[in-house]
């Protein structure tokens, strides 16, 4: 474990040095992050221009939810998104061999080798929005609230990673598509809003099959003090199950990987 942490730090350092070559990008990235979250808030404003509840959530509640969403999205863009096209490229060209022969776990390497640390700005902005939403609501979360929030947030990260990894692993078969990440984005967009907003079978799917509801709604609800231990535990359990599935799927894909002839 300690070894992998060291390797991760080394990845981070390498990418950091690489990014420092392009220091002028900082301003652009800062602007785009602020722009992104500003637009998201504006969208919420437009909805609340016509109503005062969204799926049973007030304006401040939805802001907290949006903060959680933005934070998680920041993590995805930081650690996961940059690696997707690279894996496709490796599989297509057969250069995955070089990675598989390295003395590190292949799944770990392909999912974290490239990091775009500018996107950590989104994480910070998301956290800021959470605080602002709570202030707007005049709600001070208790220590237990925060603890449950941290647990559910960690489960969400693991869940996201697993779903993302499963999608990425399909690249062993569908190598013609340049970028699969928009499939994930389509699904993840549904997590932007309260789950109570969806009806019928869509809601069932988003709760149990593709747990968008769990990913953003649970952490937001925990911070707002509306958690219960059972659902938090289920979220944790779900995360472990999905991680296991992703791992199995990766192993399965590797078995069918035949490498490109050289």
């Amino acid at each position: 474990m300690g070894r992998y942490w060291r390797i991760f730090r080394e990845f981070f350092r390498a990418c950091f040095v690489e990014e420092l070559e392009y220091r002028s990008e900082f301003l652009g990235n800062l602007v785009s992050s602020f722009f992104g979250i500003g637009i998201a808030i504006l969208t919420i404003h437009i909805f609340f221009y016509q109503t005062d509840r969204l799926g049973g959530w007030t304006y401040a509640d939805v802001l907290v939810l949006l903060g959680v969403f933005n934070t998680l999205k920041g993590w995805i863009d930081f650690a996961l998104r940059p690696n997707m096209p690279r894996l496709l490229e490796h599989v297509r060209r057969g250069t995955l061999d070089y990675i598989l022969t390295k003395p590190v776990d292949g799944m770990f390497y392909v999912s974290f080798r490239h990091l775009v640390f500018w996107r950590l700005i989104d994480v910070a902005l998301g956290l800021g929005l959470i605080v602002y939403g709570l202030a707007e609501k005049h709600y001070m979360p208790s220590l237990v609230d925060i603890l449950v929030f941290l647990i559910t947030m960690a489960s969400s990260l693991v869940l996201i990673y697993s779903l993302w990894m499963m999608l990425m692993t399909t690249s062993f078969w569908v190598i013609r598509i340049d970028d699969l990440s928009f499939i994930f984005d389509s699904f993840f967009e549904t997590a932007r809003f309260p789950i109570g907003m969806y009806r019928g079978w869509v809601r069932v799917i988003l709760t149990y099959v593709l747990p968008a509801a769990v990913i953003t709604n649970m952490p937001a609800l925990s911070l707002l003090g509306k958690w219960n231990m059972a659902t938090a535990l289920i979220a944790g359990l779900l995360a472990v199950v999905f991680l296991w599935l992703a791992r199995r799927f990766w192993r399965f894909a590797l078995r069918s990987y035949t490498s490109a002839s050289s």
């Binding site: 909805f47 969204l54 928009f182 499939i183 389509s186 699904f187 967009e189 549904t190 932007r192 809003f193 907003m197 969806y198 009806r199 869509v202």
Partner: peptide, 12 residues
């Protein structure tokens, strides 16, 4: 690919 965003907005 481009249909989820309108569908979500519609749900809202």
């Amino acid at each position: 690919g481009a249909i989820t965003q309108p569908l979500i907005t519609m749900a809202v």
